[in-house]
Design a binder for these strands. Structure first.
Length: 167
DNA sequence: GCCAACGTTGGC
DNA sequence: GCCAACGTTGGC
Protein backbone atom coordinates (compact mmCIF):
# COMPACT_ATOMS: atom_id res chain seq x y z
CA UNK A 1 0.00 0.00 0.00
CA UNK A 2 1.34 3.42 -0.91
CA UNK A 3 1.92 6.00 1.70
CA UNK A 4 -0.97 8.07 0.30
CA UNK A 5 -3.32 5.10 0.32
CA UNK A 6 -2.29 4.25 3.81
CA UNK A 7 -3.01 7.75 5.06
CA UNK A 8 -6.48 7.60 3.49
CA UNK A 9 -7.45 4.27 4.95
CA UNK A 10 -6.15 4.84 8.43
CA UNK A 11 -8.87 5.46 10.90
CA UNK A 12 -9.11 8.97 12.27
CA UNK A 13 -6.13 9.54 14.54
CA UNK A 14 -6.75 9.53 18.26
CA UNK A 15 -6.44 12.99 19.73
CA UNK A 16 -2.97 14.08 20.69
CA UNK A 17 -1.63 12.55 23.86
CA UNK A 18 -2.51 14.64 26.89
CA UNK A 19 -0.76 14.89 30.24
CA UNK A 20 -1.86 14.84 33.86
CA UNK A 21 -0.57 15.10 37.37
CA UNK A 22 -2.22 12.68 39.78
CA UNK A 23 -1.78 12.91 43.53
CA UNK A 24 -1.55 9.84 45.70
CA UNK A 25 -0.77 9.51 49.36
CA UNK A 26 2.21 7.15 49.48
CA UNK A 27 0.79 5.56 52.65
CA UNK A 28 -2.02 4.35 50.44
CA UNK A 29 -0.30 3.90 47.09
CA UNK A 30 3.24 5.03 46.32
CA UNK A 31 5.24 4.82 43.11
CA UNK A 32 6.70 1.61 44.54
CA UNK A 33 3.21 0.20 45.03
CA UNK A 34 2.46 0.99 41.41
CA UNK A 35 5.76 -0.57 40.28
CA UNK A 36 4.96 -3.73 42.21
CA UNK A 37 1.37 -4.00 41.00
CA UNK A 38 2.04 -2.90 37.44
CA UNK A 39 -1.26 -1.04 37.33
CA UNK A 40 -3.83 0.26 39.78
CA UNK A 41 -7.44 1.41 39.60
CA UNK A 42 -7.43 5.06 40.68
CA UNK A 43 -9.96 4.58 43.46
CA UNK A 44 -11.22 7.11 45.94
CA UNK A 45 -11.61 10.27 43.89
CA UNK A 46 -14.62 12.05 45.38
CA UNK A 47 -14.35 15.41 43.71
CA UNK A 48 -16.47 16.13 40.65
CA UNK A 49 -13.87 18.04 38.69
CA UNK A 50 -11.28 15.30 39.14
CA UNK A 51 -13.88 12.67 38.27
CA UNK A 52 -14.82 14.56 35.12
CA UNK A 53 -11.20 14.51 33.96
CA UNK A 54 -11.13 10.72 34.30
CA UNK A 55 -14.62 10.15 32.92
CA UNK A 56 -14.69 12.66 30.09
CA UNK A 57 -11.22 13.74 29.06
CA UNK A 58 -8.58 11.10 29.76
CA UNK A 59 -7.65 8.63 27.04
CA UNK A 60 -5.63 5.44 27.10
CA UNK A 61 -1.99 6.35 26.64
CA UNK A 62 -2.15 9.75 28.32
CA UNK A 63 0.94 10.55 30.38
CA UNK A 64 0.78 10.85 34.16
CA UNK A 65 3.12 12.54 36.61
CA UNK A 66 2.75 10.43 39.74
CA UNK A 67 2.79 12.80 42.72
CA UNK A 68 3.22 11.93 46.39
CA UNK A 69 1.04 14.14 48.62
CA UNK A 70 0.33 14.48 52.34
CA UNK A 71 3.66 12.98 53.26
CA UNK A 72 7.09 14.06 54.56
CA UNK A 73 8.45 14.66 51.04
CA UNK A 74 5.71 15.82 48.68
CA UNK A 75 6.68 15.84 45.02
CA UNK A 76 6.75 13.99 41.72
CA UNK A 77 7.97 10.43 42.20
CA UNK A 78 7.71 8.94 38.73
CA UNK A 79 5.79 8.44 35.51
CA UNK A 80 2.67 6.47 34.75
CA UNK A 81 0.14 6.11 31.97
CA UNK A 82 -3.62 5.91 31.66
CA UNK A 83 -4.39 2.33 30.62
CA UNK A 84 -8.16 1.86 30.70
CA UNK A 85 -11.43 3.42 29.71
CA UNK A 86 -13.41 4.97 32.55
CA UNK A 87 -15.58 2.63 34.62
CA UNK A 88 -17.41 2.84 37.96
CA UNK A 89 -15.22 3.00 41.07
CA UNK A 90 -16.12 -0.20 42.93
CA UNK A 91 -15.29 1.29 46.33
CA UNK A 92 -18.34 3.56 46.18
CA UNK A 93 -20.60 0.50 46.61
CA UNK A 94 -18.60 -1.16 49.37
CA UNK A 95 -20.00 -0.27 52.81
CA UNK A 96 -16.71 -1.30 54.41
CA UNK A 97 -14.67 1.04 52.24
CA UNK A 98 -13.49 4.40 53.40
CA UNK A 99 -14.75 5.64 50.05
CA UNK A 100 -18.25 4.19 50.36
CA UNK A 101 -20.93 6.52 49.05
CA UNK A 102 -24.39 5.51 50.20
CA UNK A 103 -25.98 7.98 47.83
CA UNK A 104 -24.50 6.37 44.73
CA UNK A 105 -26.73 3.77 43.08
CA UNK A 106 -25.26 0.85 41.08
CA UNK A 107 -27.53 1.64 38.13
CA UNK A 108 -26.40 5.26 38.25
CA UNK A 109 -22.85 5.32 39.60
CA UNK A 110 -21.63 8.68 40.72
CA UNK A 111 -17.88 7.99 40.68
CA UNK A 112 -15.85 6.81 37.70
CA UNK A 113 -12.16 6.00 37.52
CA UNK A 114 -9.46 4.83 35.14
CA UNK A 115 -6.61 2.37 35.60
CA UNK A 116 -3.08 3.75 35.64
CA UNK A 117 -0.01 1.69 34.82
CA UNK A 118 3.57 2.02 35.92
CA UNK A 119 6.09 3.54 33.52
CA UNK A 120 9.09 4.43 35.64
CA UNK A 121 10.23 5.69 38.97
CA UNK A 122 12.35 8.83 39.16
CA UNK A 123 14.37 10.60 41.78
CA UNK A 124 11.86 12.60 43.78
CA UNK A 125 11.28 16.08 42.43
CA UNK A 126 10.24 18.01 45.54
CA UNK A 127 7.41 20.50 45.48
CA UNK A 128 9.87 23.26 46.36
CA UNK A 129 11.89 22.48 43.25
CA UNK A 130 8.82 22.58 41.02
CA UNK A 131 8.04 26.00 42.44
CA UNK A 132 11.57 27.19 41.79
CA UNK A 133 11.37 26.84 37.99
CA UNK A 134 9.99 29.75 36.04
CA UNK A 135 8.97 27.32 33.28
CA UNK A 136 6.52 25.69 35.68
CA UNK A 137 5.10 28.87 37.20
CA UNK A 138 1.68 28.30 35.64
CA UNK A 139 1.26 24.65 36.56
CA UNK A 140 -2.28 24.11 37.81
CA UNK A 141 -1.12 22.01 40.72
CA UNK A 142 1.08 24.86 41.96
CA UNK A 143 -1.69 27.43 42.01
CA UNK A 144 -2.42 28.97 45.34
CA UNK A 145 -4.99 27.02 47.26
CA UNK A 146 -5.16 24.22 44.72
CA UNK A 147 -6.59 21.02 46.17
CA UNK A 148 -7.50 19.11 43.05
CA UNK A 149 -6.01 15.64 43.10
CA UNK A 150 -5.94 15.42 39.30
CA UNK A 151 -4.73 18.37 37.26
CA UNK A 152 -3.86 18.85 33.60
CA UNK A 153 -0.23 19.34 32.59
CA UNK A 154 0.71 21.19 29.39
CA UNK A 155 2.99 19.54 26.81
CA UNK A 156 5.66 22.15 27.59
CA UNK A 157 5.46 21.42 31.32
CA UNK A 158 5.60 17.69 30.62
CA UNK A 159 8.61 18.11 28.37
CA UNK A 160 10.42 20.30 30.87
CA UNK A 161 9.82 17.95 33.77
CA UNK A 162 10.57 14.71 31.96
CA UNK A 163 13.63 15.92 30.07
CA UNK A 164 15.13 18.57 32.33
CA UNK A 165 14.21 17.44 35.83
CA UNK A 166 14.30 13.68 35.37
CA UNK A 167 17.40 11.72 34.55
C1' DG B 1 -1.14 20.10 65.17
C1' DC B 2 -2.09 24.37 62.66
C1' DC B 3 -4.47 26.68 59.37
C1' DA B 4 -5.46 28.65 54.63
C1' DA B 5 -8.19 27.60 51.00
C1' DC B 6 -11.63 25.42 48.94
C1' DG B 7 -15.90 22.25 48.01
C1' DT B 8 -20.26 20.68 49.74
C1' DT B 9 -24.38 20.86 52.38
C1' DG B 10 -28.57 22.51 53.84
C1' DG B 11 -31.60 26.10 55.90
C1' DC B 12 -33.97 29.87 54.37
C1' DG C 1 -30.22 31.23 44.68
C1' DC C 2 -27.74 32.88 48.77
C1' DC C 3 -24.52 32.00 52.11
C1' DA C 4 -22.99 30.33 56.74
C1' DA C 5 -21.39 26.26 58.64
C1' DC C 6 -18.95 22.42 58.13
C1' DG C 7 -15.62 19.03 56.30
C1' DT C 8 -11.50 18.09 53.65
C1' DT C 9 -7.02 18.81 51.53
C1' DG C 10 -2.41 19.21 52.04
C1' DG C 11 1.81 21.93 52.97
C1' DC C 12 4.32 23.31 56.75
Amino acid sequence: MSRAENSRTEKAPARARQYWLMKSEPDEASIDTLAKEGALPWTGVRNYQARNFMRDVMRIGDGVLFYHSSCPEPGIAGLAEVCSQPYPDPTQFDPKSHYYDAASKPDEPRWQLVDVKYVRKSALIPLAELRAHEELADMVVLRRGNRLSITPVTPAEWRFITTRLMG
